[in-house]
Every structure is written in C-alpha cells, then in structure tokens.
C-alpha cells in the first residue's frame, strides 16, 4: 500500500500560526499546572528524606529524577515548542480549519454553514498575555472547533468573520 512517488491529495496545515506570545503563555501554563507541582513534590520529598531518612537518598534520588524531575523538565521544554509548531488556524471561504495538540495532533474542519455559536474566552493568564481562545460550536460536541493562542485582535477578527459568514451561508436547518 505504500505508494511512493505517487501524487496524493493531502490536507495542508492551516495558513495562520498562533501569536508569538502564545509560547510564553504555554510555558507559564506548563509551570503552573505540571512542572511546578512535580518539581515541588520532588523537592519536598528530597528535603524530607534528607531530614529524616538520609539512608533512602541513594535510591530515592534517581527515582525522583526519573519519575518527577525529567518528565517535568521535558514537558515544559517540549510542550510549548511543539504546540507553537502545530497550532494554526484558517477561516476559509466556506469552512473554518484549526490544528492543535503537541503529541496528539488534531486537525478539525467545520463548514461555516453549520456553525451555531462563536465564543471567545480569555482566562486570567491569557489576558495577561493578550491572548484568547475562540471556540466555534456546531450542533455536535464532536464538531466544536477550538482556536487557541491567538491574539486579541485576531480573535475578534475571527469571531466577526465567522459570525458574518455563518449568517450569510445558506443555513441548513438540521444543523443550525
């Protein structure tokens, strides 16, 4: 089935990437949700071990390094970088297209005629970075398109474009 050299039809990545600030946002997010707590746990255990069970250090040290410290460091280094590379969006003439994820890649396309609502969400952290998440909902929970890490201005433009296009698109009764 491997058809080398044959022309095929592929889904190209969306045109627009996320805002450059998004990488810092994801880094802070990683520190707050995963890396910080993991490292804190490791330090706490290490200190407790130093104070009360010095004999446990020879095996506890490598264990903590392998189970807590390295994954935490790997996550904070890899996740924002990969997300910046993968996350992208595009509002085409008839459909909205978004890509996301870091290990698991997800690309989703929903026609504008099927759009029900457009939500723009800014969390406290996102607000600090001037970023927003645009969620385009359809009638199906498996059809909601999320565009994460775009700048405020972009988010507004996206929301306006999609709302306008959805209004103009020939409404399909069963979807709307």
């Amino acid at each position: 089935m491997a058809r080398h050299g044959q022309t095929t039809i592929r889904l190209r990545p969306p045109r627009h990437g996320v805002a450059p600030r998004a990488r810092r946002w994801w880094t802070v997010q990683a520190w707050l949700t995963v890396t910080g707590p993991l490292l804190l746990t490791a330090v706490t255990l290490l200190v407790l071990s130093l104070l009360f069970f010095p004999g446990a250090l020879p095996w506890l040290g490598p264990l903590l390094l392998g189970v807590l410290v390295l994954p935490a460091a790997g996550y904070v280094l890899a996740m924002p970088r990969l997300r910046c590379r993968i996350h992208a969006w595009e509002v085409g003439g008839s459909a909205v297209y978004a890509a996301g994820g870091w290990l698991l890649h997800k690309r989703r396309i929903a026609p504008l005629s099927r759009v029900q609502t457009v939500d723009t969400v800014r969390g406290p952290l996102q607000r600090a970075f001037g970023l927003a998440t645009v969620t385009v909902t359809t009638a199906s929970t498996a059809g909601d398109v999320r565009i994460t890490g775009v700048s405020d201005e972009d988010a507004e433009r996206i929301a306006a474009r999609i709302t306008e296009a959805a209004r103009l698109a020939p409404g399909e009764g069963d979807a709307a």
Partner: peptide, 29 residues
Amino acid sequence: LAWTFTDTPFSRRAGLVTATAAVAAGEDG
C-alpha cells in the same frame, strides 16, 4: 457537521490517521 483528523507519534510513523465524522446524533463523533 465536521471532520477531525487525529494522529499520535506512533500512528504518524505508521502512516495512519483516525478520522472522526461529527454528527448531531447518537455518539456525536
């Protein structure tokens, strides 16, 4: 209503992708 294509590092190496058709019925996806 929508198409989703999902892949993992393993499936990417194997040249596979999972496509999800979203409908407003049943299991949704």
